[in-house]
């Protein structure tokens, strides 16, 4: 997924990838050994693939924000705005006698509306950060409350539910044995990988995240990059909103607020650094799988989800400390060589 770094030695890169794969792989083996009978079922994998879509999408959006050296706390709220828009559209078509094909078109309309709503939210964040020069963390904290406030106002705090069965059938359905919503995640993964590795935007984003001042001095249009990042975050969050409405058939103001923080956990496992400039899609996907394995692994083992938060924390801190230790050792080796 991640292209070989320009001109780099293959060995070094694959080493790094290995580090990312190691975590989910280890978890996989542990769970496999402990309870192969419940773990290795088609149903289990299917339910895992259903569960990880939202976190995966939010994580990818957060990855872009992190690589640029900022953060987007309003992702879940943006998703809720998009979800609300989708819900209103579906509601307005409810009761009409539509054919399957017509419902298909309605869905397409919903996707575009959700994406547009997300992009608008992203533009707003981008304006705050790139033009008003607010700190990304504070700007998106503000817009997080603002966006969810908007949803509260429009919905009076109630959840919007009760869409045609057809929609939920589609959202929970599978094609060729793969969850329909998983296709959305796969599409966004591929899109992100292309953006990051094949396009000028990705390259400039990494330059920007590594050193904003030097980027400015090198003729990179910093505010345009910042704008693009937040629009992209909004777009992905908008798609997330669409995804969860068709899956759980509800839209409400405070859905999935915790995803913002778990996504930070997830991308940190995948080697994306909050100081900017570092990270890739491959790592994020590994981190996502690791998190999903942990949470469903423990429900399989009958430990329930009560342990989930605890273990996520242990995993993240453990991996960070271990990475730091490895880095120190590497540095020492380098010095000793001289």
């Amino acid at each position: 997924m991640k292209e070989k770094k320009t001109g780099g030695s293959r060995l070094k890169i694959s080493n790094e990838k290995l580090k990312f794969i190691a975590i989910p792989l280890t978890l996989f083996i542990i769970i496999l050994v402990l309870d192969p009978a419940d773990f290795l079922t088609v149903g289990n994998f299917r339910s895992m693939s259903f569960q990880m879509v939202e976190l995966g999408l939010i994580s990818l959006a957060m990855m872009f924000a992190f690589i640029s050296g900022s953060i987007d706390l309003s992702l879940a709220s943006t998703a809720n705005i998009a979800a609300m828009v989708v819900a209103f559209i579906l509601k307005s078509f409810d009761g009409h006698e539509l054919t399957d094909q017509q419902w298909g078109w309605v869905l397409v309309l919903c996707i575009f509306a959700a994406a547009a709503a997300g992009v608008l939210c992203g533009l707003f964040n981008g304006f705050l950060v790139a033009k008003c020069k607010l700190q990304p963390m504070l700007a998106t904290l503000g817009s997080m409350y603002l966006f969810s406030g908007i949803v509260f106002m429009f919905t009076q705090g109630k959840s919007i539910a009760g869409f045609p069965e057809l929609i939920s059938d589609f959202g929970n359905g599978t094609t060729f044995g793969i969850a329909n919503t998983l296709f959305i995640l796969i599409f966004v993964i591929v899109l992100s990988a292309v953006l990051l590795n094949k396009m000028r935007f990705g390259k400039e984003l990494k330059y920007f995240g590594t050193n904003k001042k030097a980027s400015l001095f090198s003729g990179i249009n910093n505010s345009k990059i910042m704008m693009k990042v937040f629009v992209l975050c909004g777009l992905i969050a908008g798609i997330t909103g669409f995804e969860y409405v068709i899956k759980i058939n509800t839209a409400k103001a405070d859905y999935g607020a915790s995803y913002v923080f778990t996504s930070v956990l997830c991308i940190s496992l995948g080697g994306v650094s909050p100081s900017g400039g570092k990270g890739g899609v491959f790592g994020v996907v590994c981190g996502l799988i690791a998190m999903q394995l942990l949470s469903s692994g423990f429900s399989i083992l009958g430990l329930g989800t009560s342990m989930k938060n605890f273990l996520w924390g242990v995993l993240l801190l453990g991996v960070m400390v271990f990475n730091y230790y490895l880095e120190c050792r590497e540095m020492k080796k380098k010095y000793a060589g001289k």
Binding site: N211, I220, G277
Partner: peptide, 27 residues
């Protein structure tokens, strides 16, 4: 001046991004 934690090669071409990508933005 420099993007310290980027590679030497990336630093060498940072000002040339426009020349090194196609019109629709592919590198």
């Amino acid at each position: 001046g420099l993007h310290l934690s980027s590679s030497i090669s990336d630093n060498a071409i940072v000002c040339l991004m426009e020349k090194l990508s196609s019109r629709c933005g592919f590198l």
